[in-house]
Nucleic acid binder design. Structure first.
Length: 504
RNA sequence: GGCCGCGUAGUACAAUGGAUAGUAUAGAGGCCUCCGAAGCCUUUGAUUCAGGUUCGAUUCCUGACGCGGCUACCA
């Protein structure tokens, strides 16, 4: 009991181990969507959890800023953009570029309709009997995109300038979303700078006999002994593919950071890719490859299945955030909770509560489980939610503000109320949970612990008088328990990237 | 076809080789002239199916079914 006020445990001491953690890593031809939200939350929270466990964590993101996708947006922009900018249109940069990516698809359809004389009420691809990916290559607009790609690769000045300008808009747009989500990266990588990496690794693999050159000239590795297939690592024309880049980038990062662990937060669609990546590096004799961990997570789906980008609104990160903030504002006003708040304070509170609801909703689920997100029903403020925990914290703070005595630990022999005892035991579990969360790379461990703690405290609060406790000793002890509970909720939620208000 | 993941109340999430499988929400009922009712209390309701291992399986194994993903010289 005397140890309770010494329970100021926040984190384990530094363990001298370095971690490189990559997350988010969007393609710059469209805005962030709900999948990036889960990615960012997992990446951010895992980082905080590892830091609290004593790791030295460096976060990185890699932007897939080149290739045919961005060239499609550029082609559509040249065709129909009329010099539009985020400033002239009032559209957030990443959305603007995304709009042109969508427009590209529309132009493809238009051109195919014209070419094959397909009436507007018929599905073009069905009518002509070709897959979209195949048919689009017949169009003029696609030829223009392809031409842009070649010009970009040749270093054509005008093309590079446009590419830089458009990507710049995208980054500015992303930054707004990052700030809202509270994430940042220690270092940014760009595919345009790393896509030629990996050739050295290929040579090394060939020299060591781990990789082999096929008759057609492509370099491959045979992973059938490991239960996988033959995997191409370099194209027959000698250019690199995704895997080549990732091998090269991993090697470069190791030489730069000498990290003990390299964590990739990437959706489970790429389980196979990362299995191959790790195996290749291990077979090359890179001992550090053992430290590679793919933090795989399942997709977020709508009630009717996978969110498709063309379904639009519901899958967009910015729209989703705006929506929860809106709901938080309505709900808070409805409850009349903001009397005495300035406009800024009230807005800050809506943001805290709205984001708390959204972040908690996603982080409370194990990463490997898919999440069904129903925009209409999923964001709740009662029960097993972020706002419930935030409310519990605010009520504790309110209680403590009312207490005028000093907080001293008492060598008490008072018999404890059963819930009181249970609560104290829960509080001492925090380090164990923190350890487990890092061990499993699972923020849900923290999320569920904090919820259970808040729930238990609320039970205690209802069952046991605190400020009105019969004796000074009991009052003192219960305030102390309340304070430690509030602090533990606060630090736990901080690991999830969720703020807890003093009042709400 | 092959491989990987998942399958727990109407819905959304927990948990465990063991004893009454927890919680939320939705439904029913109760608690503000005592510390904040975004709260608390009571109550209804679930381990996809079939085998196997085991004294004991919701958990481990095999198969079926369902959902999702991967199976590119795309990223």
């Amino acid at each position: 009991m005397q140890d309770l006020d010494k329970n100021d445990f926040i984190a384990f001491p530094p363990n001298g181990k370095k971690v490189l953690l990559e997350y988010c890593s969007p393609n710059t031809n469209k805005p962030l969507h709900i999948g990036h939200v889960r990615n960012m939350l997992l990446g951010y929270s895992t980082t905080e959890i590892l830091k609290a466990n004593g790791y030295d964590v460096t976060t990185v993101s890699i932007y897939n800023d080149r290739g045919i996708a961005i060239c499609k947006s550029m082609a559509a922009y040249i065709e129909r953009g009329n010099g539009a900018t985020p400033e002239s249109t009032g559209i957030k940069g990443d959305h603007l570029i995304g709009d042109y990516y969508v427009l590209f698809g529309q132009i493809v359809t238009e051109q195919l309709r014209a070419k094959y004389n397909v009436p507007a009420d018929q599905d073009v691809y069905k009518t002509i009997g070709k897959e979209k990916e195949v048919a689009e290559q017949e169009t003029e607009i696609f030829a223009k995109a392809k031409d842009l790609l070649l010009k970009w690769e040749a270093g054509d000045e005008a093309t590079i300038a446009l590419w830089k300008k458009m990507n710049g808009w995208v980054y500015a747009g992303y930054q707004v979303t990052y700030d809202m989500m509270g994430v940042s990266f220690d270092k940014d990588y760009y595919e345009s700078q790393t896509y030629t990496l990996g050739k050295d690794i290929i040579d090394e693999g060939l020299a060591k006999g781990v990789f082999y050159k096929r008759p057609d000239g492509a370099v491959a590795i045979d992973l059938t002994p490991d239960g996988l297939d033959e995997k191409i690592l370099l194209r027959s024309d000698g250019t690199s593919i995704y895997m080549t880049q990732d091998l090269g980038t991993a090697d470069v990062r190791y030489n730069e950071y000498h990290m003990d662990k390299m964590i990739y937060v990437v959706a489970n669609e790429q389980d196979y890719h990362f299995k191959v990546l790790k195996l290749c590096l291990q077979k090359l004799g890179k001992s550090w490859a053992d430290g590679i961990h793919h933090l795989s997570y399942s997709l977020v789906e709508s009630p009717t299945g996978r969110f498709k980008s063309r379904e639009g609104k519901t899958a967009d990160a910015d729209d989703m955030i705006a929506e929860v903030l809106q709901i938080a504002e309505e709900k808070t006003k409805e409850l009349g909770k903001t009397s005495g708040f300035s406009a800024e304070e009230a807005n800050a509170l809506y943001k805290t509560i709205g984001l708390g609801a959204l972040k908690y909703f996603i982080l409370r689920v194990n990463p490997y489980k898919k999440i069904i997100f129903n925009p209409e029903e999923s964001i709740d403020f009662h029960g097993h939610t972020g706002p419930f925990i935030q409310y519990s914290h605010a009520r504790i703070r309110s209680l403590i503000r009312k207490y005028t005595g000093t907080l001293v630990s008492i060598d008490t022999t008072t018999t404890l109320h059963s819930t009181e005892r249970e609560l104290i035991l829960q509080l001492f579990e925090y380090p164990t949970v923190l350890l487990a969360a890092a061990d499993k790379y699972d923020p849900a461990e923290i999320a569920n612990y904090v919820y259970n703690l808040a729930k238990l405290y609320n039970k205690f609060y209802n069952e046991v008088p605190i400020l009105t406790a019969p004796t000074q000793e009991e009052k003192n002890l219960r305030i102390l328990i309340s304070k430690v509970t509030g602090d533990t909720i606060k630090k736990g939620m901080k690991l999830l990237g969720i703020e807890v208000p003093e009042k709400m």
